[in-house]
Design a protein around this nucleic acid. Structure first.
Lengths: 230, 230
DNA sequence: TGGTGTGAATTCCTTCACAGCG
DNA sequence: CGCTGTGAAGGAATTCACACCA
């Protein structure tokens, strides 16, 4: 039992850190556009909405890119985080389901910050197939496998009704896609090695409702968050 | 002498648990529609996509609603979770920003599972104001405060461009809203006591890209292969 | 001096393993 | 028995606090 895993693997960045890197990246880009050459962990943390100790710890997983007594070089840090996230290459994305949500996604300008290319929009509804959306022609779902292969799609986005989601997911996986972003309110079953992330409006609303109720219960004041030490 | 208050949260259900309750609820509703009267933690966990120990631990925070040797009564558990999440009452929601995303949200049928009522759709664009969307007339953003007061809005949804989000958020907060669901890619600043949850497409894509890159690198870090148990 | 990088302490979450009840 | 509920162990993430360096 004397294994020693205290080293966060040369290449092993904690999940929680990975989930925050995009936040830092966005904050840095905002600073960069404003012409700011360097930032301290305190400033950057404040812009990104986290505390500075967490930010420094997160960045330390990437390497020592800061300068003591000074801070971080904005452009250099943008590059390092981008590289770590894999944004220095382009990823092809296919969106299935071209309803309002699919259109919203397709029109999501710049797609965050480059690094992603919408390779295809697919739908099952003949009334939608052929439409021009965000400069692309909507294709038929039947061409999914062909499109994935031709466009080297590596991320599949599912914006279909719940009932269709698992079927679309299976086809993505069958076609070799190993990353799926799911907007349909269902739990997708996928084999090991396939990553699924889900975005679910109603779950977020329900979490808010829980806290809202909590606040309403604790009539009396703002101490609902504070210690209830007797 | 500075003993930190050890208990910031006394009667609290862990955040991680709260975030999963909606999943269990959805799984239970699916089972209920299929006519299943009872489930074991094993079955329910499988449907919800978590492991059974976690599920039991989560449910134990609500109380002892299961029967040893049998499992959980589906309908009863639905009721208990709904109550805990505050879904036995209706929450009024106002959506600001009626682009494709706002429309997608407005048309999100049943809004998860009842418990939520879209009280208003607001936009700043005169070309959109007056439109009928999801059975509602789109109002002008100027009426935000009035609408919040009249409809007792408790959850504000921001589906505007990034540049407008903080302003809308400030107006929500000023009008007394204490829960905000933000779809715009910015970090919102809010006073204590206001809950913000964010849904961010590009962050999710970037997290997927990170893992996708990791898989492509292949050599060295086969931690995602570790699930070769089965 | 000012601010990074990081061991150590702390808190939070997950998983194990089994006592005990229906 | 079978399955829940839960202490206890194990891990992960956060926060503290300060050594150390540009």
């Amino acid at each position: 039992m004397t294994r020693r895993p205290p080293r966060p693997r040369e290449r092993g960045i904690p999940e929680a850190t990975v989930a925050r890197l995009p936040l830092y990246l966005r904050a840095l880009q905002a600073l960069d556009e404003r012409g700011t050459p360097t930032v301290s962990s305190e400033e950057l943390a404040s812009v990104a909405g986290v505390n500075s100790a967490k930010l420094r710890k997160d960045l330390s997983h990437l390497g020592s890119y800061g300068t003591r007594g000074v801070g971080y070089d904005v452009e250099y840090l943008i590059y390092q985080i981008s590289r770590e996230l894999g944004l220095t290459q382009d990823w092809s994305v296919a969106i299935v389901g071209v309803g309002n949500l699919g259109r919203a996604l397709a029109n999501y300008g710049g797609f965050g910050t480059r690094g992603f290319r919408i390779a295809a929009l697919l739908d099952a509804d003949p009334a939608v197939v052929g439409d021009a959306v965000a400069g692309l022609r909507v294709g038929h779902i039947d061409s999914l496998e062909e499109v994935v292969a031709r466009e080297h799609v590596s991320i599949g986005v599912i914006a279909t009704p719940a009932a269709a989601a698992q079927g679309v997911c299976d086809r993505f996986v069958g076609a070799g896609v190993t990353s799926v972003l799911n907007f349909a309110p269902v739990v997708l079953n996928v084999p090991d090695g396939v990553d699924v992330r889900k975005v679910d409006l109603s779950i977020e609303l329900q979490i808010l409702a829980f806290h809202e109720q909590r606040k309403a219960d604790g009539r009396g004041g703002p101490e609902w968050i504070e210690a209830l030490e007797a």
